[in-house]
């Protein structure tokens, strides 16, 4: 069971598109995407591209979890002007530093769900 905005977000992601909602009424961009604008309370949304580069704010490794069958590195990436995105990180934990510039990619989980991941820019 997933909300409508998330269903659309992950459907776009499966096509390699990394997008979120912007309010047509007031121009506010939100992350995560939503069906109601908290700034003007309007309900008229359009989908816009998110930045595909950001800064690594924090990272860790998750041992036990659904979906991930081995320890996955997870992190928080700050997209300028948008905010923090909780995401998979495609790099060994020991190679990562707070403040590293990272770039977007998609990742297909063992159960076939397309999610986003970021990796340090080479």
């Amino acid at each position: 069971m997933q909300d409508k905005a998330a269903e659309e977000f992950f459907a776009l992601l499966a096509r390699g598109e990394f997008r979120t909602t912007r309010c047509r009424g007031c121009g506010e961009t939100h992350y995560p995407p939503r069906v109601v604008c908290p700034a003007c309370l309007g309900e008229d949304m359009e989908w816009v591209d998110l930045p595909r580069e950001g800064t690594l704010v924090a990272f860790t490794q998750q041992r036990d979890a659904m979906r991930c069958r081995r320890p996955e590195v997870l992190g928080l990436v700050e997209l300028e002007g948008i905010g923090n995105v909780f995401t998979r990180i495609d790099a060994p934990l020991e190679d990562l530093r707070i403040g590293t510039r990272v770039a977007f990619d998609t990742w297909t989980s063992p159960d076939g769900v397309v999610l986003h991941q970021f990796r340090p820019r080479s």
């Binding site: 997933q2 909300d3 905005a5 998330a6 977000f9 992950f10 995560p32 704010v57 924090a58 990272f59 860790t60 998750q62 036990d64 979890a65 659904m66 979906r67 991930c68 996955e72 997870l74 992190g75 928080l76 995105v85 909780f86 995401t87 998979r88 989980s109 769900v113 999610l115």
Partner: peptide, 17 residues
């Protein structure tokens, strides 16, 4: 949905960060 998608079942990774 945007946190749950990564299989999180406890707030542990958030606290770790």
């Amino acid at each position: 949905s945007y946190q749950a998608a990564f299989g999180v079942i406890s707030p542990l990774p958030f606290y770790a960060m």
